[in-house]
């Protein structure tokens, strides 16, 4: 079994100091700058991960969870930092810290390259720096970005990620300065949390219609902590729009749902399930492919229900196996059988 979404807790600034230059050590020691202090979750909410150490992760994900391999990401919000030099320095330090303190110490753990997504050229350099580094299998991109991910701003970054062979993991969260909905700032985190599925939907539209997958035919994307029960309705809408308006985006030569099924994979957490199990099966079937879903625990984040426990027993054995193992193995190009 492969767990496609577990989390390394945010590093404390002092843990990053060994990986920073003299300049930044002096800066962080003598100013009020505390690094990426923003979080994608309210600091004390039930969904916010309580950072345990490697021992806790080992116990929960591998020993109790039964994962053979787990793909980890660190949601350190370097995208919230306006100072570009600080954002770059902290992204680099976070990656070196992840590598040294987590990935090198636990060979069953695979990592995600943290990038300053607000600076696409610097993000590309960071991807190149880690492309061949053992342990890293994907690039972490928060779903809330300053520009939609299909925008020309990001095309060189997509090309770099495609050529690096890494997966692009688009994850819940992000800290651009604009509101999280098209209709302004909501009062409550519950609303922002709910709206995150709609941000995934607009990013999917954007990447497909702005030609990312036409420019990068080998690009592989995974949505993490996006939920998936919203996807069939969005595919129907996108396909209808494409039939009517494709002459405005002539490079999109196939229905958007084709691009989605070819290039995008989705973690099963959070489940956002209908009240009736039979309806959940219908939604899974409406996704239109058995290759899409990946088992994801989202350790140590808490969700409304355990997606694996609730979803997998409903499914036929072959699909269970694909979701537990084969789909992730294929996405991350992990060798067959005993990994590592």
């Amino acid at each position: 079994m492969i767990d496609a979404d577990v989390h390394i807790p945010n590093p404390r600034l002092r843990e990053l100091l060994p990986f920073l230059s003299e300049h930044w050590i002096e800066h962080f020691s003598n100013t009020l700058d505390k690094g990426a202090s923003q979080q994608y979750y309210p600091p004390r909410s039930p969904v916010t991960g309580r950072g345990g150490g490697l021992g806790d992760l080992r116990e929960a994900v591998f020993d109790r969870g039964g994962a053979e391999v787990a793909v980890a990401s660190c949601l350190y919000a370097v995208d919230s930092i306006h100072n570009p030099d600080a954002a770059i320095a902290l992204a680099t330090a976070t990656n070196d810290w992840q590598s040294r303190e987590w990935l090198e110490r636990e060979p069953r753990l695979r990592g995600s390259v943290v990038v300053p997504i607000q600076l696409p050229a610097a993000a590309s350099e960071e991807v190149e720096r880690h492309a061949d580094r053992p342990g890293f299998v994907q690039v972490l991109i928060p779903v809330r970005t300053e520009h939609p991910l299909g925008s020309r701003h990001y095309h060189p970054l997509w090309k770099t990620i495609e050529q690096s062979g890494l997966v692009a993991a688009i994850h819940f969260g992000g800290a651009p300065v604009m509101p999280p909905t098209p209709t302004g700032w909501p009062s409550f985190f519950l609303e922002e949390y709910t709206a995150m599925a709609q941000v995934f939907a607009t990013q999917l539209t954007s990447m497909i219609v702005e030609g990312v997958f036409d420019a990068c035919p080998d690009l592989r994307v995974v949505f993490l902590e996006s939920g998936f029960t919203w996807i069939p309705a969005h595919l129907w809408r996108m396909d209808k729009e494409w039939r009517n308006l494709r002459r405005l985006v002539p490079w999109v030569r196939r229905p958007p749902s084709d691009y989605f099924r070819e290039h995008v994979r989705v973690g099963i957490q959070p489940l956002d399930a209908p009240p009736v199990p039979a309806q959940l099966l219908e939604v899974v079937e409406q996704l239109g492919s058995d290759d899409l879903l990946l088992f994801a625990s989202d350790y140590p984040h808490v969700h409304a229900c355990d997606a694996g426990e609730r979803l997998l027993p409903l499914l036929p054995a072959t699909l269970q196996r694909k979701i537990r193992d084969e789909n992730a193995r294929s996405l991350y190009r992990l060798p067959e059988g005993g990994v590592p």
């Binding site: 520009h147 939609p148 020309r152 509101p179 709609q198 941000v199 607009t202 539209t205 494409w242 405005l248």
Partner: peptide
């Protein structure tokens, strides 16, 4: 959108 200004009318019309 919750992630910036898209480029094309098809995105306005889908969102």
């Amino acid at each position: 959108t919750g992630a910036g200004h898209p480029s094309y009318y098809i995105e306005d019309h889908t969102s």
